[in-house]
Each structure stands twice: as C-alpha cells, then as structure tokens.
Measured scan of single mutants.
Amino acid sequence: DVEPGKFYKGVVTRIEKYGAFINLNEQVRGLLRPRDMISLRLENLNVGDEIIVQAIDVRPEKREIDFKYIP
C-alpha cells in the first residue's frame, strides 16, 4: 500500500504536458505534475528513467496517486 509522505522508487512510463506518469510496480501508477517538481523540469525526464518520488495524495477509491519530486 502506498502511504502519503513516504518515498518510493518509480519508473517514468509516459510524459504529457500536464505531468509524468510514474509506475511503482505493475499495479501502482501515479502522476508527477510540473508544480510538484523541485529542481527538476518535465523536459529533463525521459521514459524509462528511474526516480525517487514522494506520495503526497493517495485516493485508493479512484486509484489515483499524486507524487512530488524532492532531490
């Protein structure tokens, strides 16, 4: 289970104008929005990159997770 405030290693699987989709595993995916990136820009991410993200909002009923990147 993903818990708000905890850090997780994930893989960038898709990049859109509104953010990057990060997979923690095959069943768990969330969104990293540009506003939640500190010292990292969306255009510097590539599909396949491994990054450490912090879960900031977890909505299991909608199967949605918002992430934050903190270097």
Results as ranks from 00 to 15, higher is better:
residue 8 Y to W: 02
residue 36 D to M: 06
residue 61 E to D: 14
residue 14 R to F: 07
residue 54 Q to C: 09
residue 50 E to P: 12
residue 52 I to F: 10
residue 21 F to W: 14
residue 55 A to C: 13
residue 33 R to Q: 05
residue 66 D to K: 08
residue 47 V to R: 05
residue 33 R to C: 03
residue 36 D to Q: 06
residue 23 N to P: 00
residue 44 N to K: 09
residue 29 R to C: 09
residue 9 K to L: 12
residue 4 P to E: 11
residue 52 I to W: 13
residue 51 I to H: 00
residue 22 I to E: 01
residue 28 V to R: 05
residue 51 I to V: 09
residue 16 E to L: 12
residue 2 V to G: 03
residue 25 N to H: 09
residue 20 A to V: 10
residue 6 K to L: 11
residue 2 V to R: 02
residue 7 F to R: 08
residue 34 P to N: 08
residue 66 D to S: 10
residue 40 L to Q: 06
residue 48 G to R: 04
residue 50 E to S: 15
residue 58 V to G: 04
residue 42 L to T: 04
residue 31 L to H: 03
residue 34 P to C: 07
residue 8 Y to A: 01
residue 31 L to R: 03
residue 16 E to F: 12
residue 58 V to D: 02
residue 29 R to I: 13
residue 7 F to W: 13
residue 17 K to G: 10
residue 45 L to W: 02
residue 18 Y to C: 05
residue 60 P to E: 09
residue 64 E to G: 07
residue 35 R to M: 10
residue 39 S to E: 15
residue 61 E to N: 13
residue 32 L to C: 02
residue 65 I to T: 04
residue 19 G to Y: 06
residue 10 G to L: 03
residue 23 N to S: 14
residue 62 K to I: 10
residue 55 A to I: 15
residue 53 V to W: 02
residue 62 K to P: 06
residue 1 D to I: 15
residue 43 E to L: 08
residue 41 R to N: 11
residue 39 S to W: 10
residue 54 Q to N: 04
residue 15 I to L: 11
residue 53 V to C: 04
residue 11 V to L: 11
residue 18 Y to I: 10
residue 70 I to Q: 10
residue 43 E to C: 09
residue 37 M to H: 03
residue 14 R to K: 12
residue 28 V to G: 04
residue 71 P to T: 08
residue 33 R to L: 05
residue 5 G to S: 06
residue 45 L to A: 01
residue 57 D to V: 13
residue 61 E to I: 10
residue 10 G to Q: 01
residue 4 P to Q: 12
residue 70 I to S: 11
residue 5 G to A: 04
residue 62 K to F: 10
residue 12 V to C: 02
residue 5 G to I: 03
residue 45 L to N: 00
residue 63 R to C: 10
residue 19 G to F: 05
residue 11 V to W: 15
residue 20 A to F: 03
residue 41 R to K: 14
residue 12 V to E: 00
residue 60 P to R: 11
residue 16 E to P: 02
residue 65 I to D: 02
residue 64 E to A: 07
residue 19 G to R: 03
residue 49 D to W: 05
residue 25 N to Q: 06
residue 25 N to K: 06
residue 53 V to I: 08
residue 47 V to D: 03
residue 56 I to R: 07
residue 5 G to W: 06
residue 45 L to F: 05
residue 63 R to G: 15
residue 27 Q to A: 14
residue 4 P to I: 15
residue 25 N to P: 04
residue 31 L to Q: 03
residue 33 R to I: 05
residue 69 Y to V: 05
residue 28 V to H: 09
residue 4 P to S: 11
residue 10 G to P: 00
residue 15 I to V: 10
residue 49 D to R: 05
residue 2 V to F: 11
residue 45 L to D: 00
residue 50 E to V: 15
residue 41 R to A: 13
residue 52 I to E: 07
residue 68 K to N: 05
residue 47 V to W: 05
residue 16 E to A: 13
residue 20 A to P: 01
residue 13 T to A: 10
residue 1 D to L: 14
residue 64 E to T: 10
